[in-house]
Amino acid sequence: MGCLRCEAPDRTRGAERPQRGAQRGDEAGPMSTGPRAIVRHETWTLTPDREPDAAPLSYKMRCTMCEEESPKSEGWNDPQSWALAHSGKNPSHRTYSEVISRPWRTFMHA
């Protein structure tokens, strides 16, 4: 898919578009839109980052009643304890969302 500005069909009936490389009103001169080039198309992949230097997974819980959140933790126990304590202090707050932060990375296929 190319640039919509450069390659979209002219939707005005009967309108003539200038030739590529020509400006409107000057059929011989170059267009003044700047460089336009596609070097190459590449295939990319997105995958969880399991490299040794990747950020660790982290967990937290968010109360869906008041939007309050537990502190972020690398383990599950602290967010779970926070949710139980939060429900104990606020008996009507009984639903939570688990928030997991997982590092991801992309790489280009050769």
Rank of each mutant, 00 (worst) to 15 (best):
T33P: 00
T45A: 10
D10G: 02
R5F: 12
P91Q: 08
G75M: 10
R105L: 06
A28Y: 11
E69F: 05
A28M: 14
T64Y: 00
E69V: 04
A110L: 03
S87G: 06
S87M: 08
Q19K: 15
R94D: 07
G88T: 11
Q19F: 13
P9R: 12
G29W: 06
S58C: 12
M65R: 03
T33H: 13
R24S: 03
K72G: 06
R62G: 00
C3Y: 09
R20H: 11
G25L: 08
T33Q: 09
T64N: 09
R17V: 15
E42C: 13
W44A: 02
G88S: 12
G88I: 04
Y59M: 02
E74R: 08
T12D: 01
L4R: 14
S87A: 13
P103S: 11
L84V: 08
P30H: 07
A22L: 01
T12P: 00
E27M: 06
G34C: 07
A55Q: 13
P91L: 04
R11I: 02
P91A: 05
H41E: 13
R11M: 07
N90H: 10
A28P: 01
L57T: 11
N90E: 02
P18T: 15
R50H: 13
R40H: 07
S81G: 03
A85N: 10
T95E: 12
T95N: 12
A15E: 04
R36N: 10
P79F: 03
C6E: 12
K89S: 05
A110R: 06
T45Y: 10
R24Y: 05
E98Y: 08
G34V: 09
T64S: 06
P56W: 08
I38H: 12
I38T: 15
H41D: 10
R5Q: 13
S92Q: 13
N90C: 01
E27F: 07
C66I: 03
R102N: 11
E74L: 04
P35A: 09
R105E: 03
C6D: 14
M1G: 09
S92C: 06
G34K: 05
G88K: 12
P9Y: 06
W82H: 01
E98A: 14
T43N: 15
S73E: 06
G21H: 06
R36C: 11
M61N: 03
L46C: 10
L84K: 13
D49S: 03
